[in-house]
């Protein structure tokens, strides 16, 4: 049997460790008292922004493959996507436990009344079926076509995540605007690809 390829032996563990980095830093920060005067705010902001960053990276992988023809990169997509869900879950749990003391009624009031929570909560909920069906077994059960269709939900999640961030900031929307630009560009790349494919077919 040939040895496992470089990507699986070395690159995957490295990416895994890197994606876990922010979480490790937060855990260390809590115990060392390094998260500033308002640690809960630091935890909420850090887990939130990493959810968005990892979603953007996940969305970047397929266009990167098209652009470079470097196919092995696809192996990282599931792992990074699951890390996005991991940080999204921490983000939600921080809010649910520390802001609302595990009271569903408070969360529901927010979801109904506050657009930025509506957007963020929806983005998170839409990620749940994607995380659940991320296994080989589920791909087989659903069939590639249906699975692919379902996983298009990640576009909605990313867009709502950006909206959530945009509506939350008090004054300076530079950062949310940057993420909006990235997500828009990555979605545009897909539209462009579809248009190109059609043109080639009709040509």
């Amino acid at each position: 049997m040939p040895p496992p390829p470089f990507s699986r032996r070395v690159a995957k563990p490295l990416v895994f460790a890197a994606a876990l980095g922010p979480f490790v830093w937060l855990v260390y920060g809590v115990f060392a008292g390094e998260l500033g005067a308002n640690p809960v705010e630091t935890i909420t902001n850090t887990t939130g922004i990493w959810t968005l960053r990892l979603l953007v990276i996940t969305l970047a992988i397929t266009p990167l493959r098209w652009a470079t023809g470097w196919n092995p990169v696809i192996q990282f997509r599931r792992m990074i996507g699951l890390f996005a869900f991991f940080y999204g879950s921490l983000h939600f749990l921080t809010y649910f436990i520390l802001d609302h003391s595990l009271m569903f009624s408070g969360v529901w009031e927010d979801v109904v009344k506050r657009p930025y929570i509506t957007a963020g909560f929806t983005a998170f909920v839409l990620m749940i079926p994607l995380a659940v069906t991320s296994t080989q077994g589920w791909i087989r059960r659903l069939g590639g076509r249906r699975w692919n269709l379902l996983h298009k939900l990640v576009y909605v999640s990313a867009a709502l995540g950006v909206l959530h961030y945009w509506w939350k900031v008090k004054l300076d929307v530079t950062d949310p605007a940057m993420y909006a630009g990235l997500v828009a560009a990555l979605l545009a790349a897909r539209v462009w690809r579809v248009v190109q494919a059609r043109r080639q077919r009709s040509a």
């Binding site: 640690p39 520390l98 003391s101 009031e109 657009p115």
Partner: peptide
């Protein structure tokens, strides 16, 4: 009277974990 984007019913006292 809520802020249009968030509730003013509770607050986090700096140094405390729950509101």
């Amino acid at each position: 009277v809520d802020h249009p984007r968030w509730s003013q019913k509770t607050e986090r006292r700096i140094g405390e974990f729950f509101r």
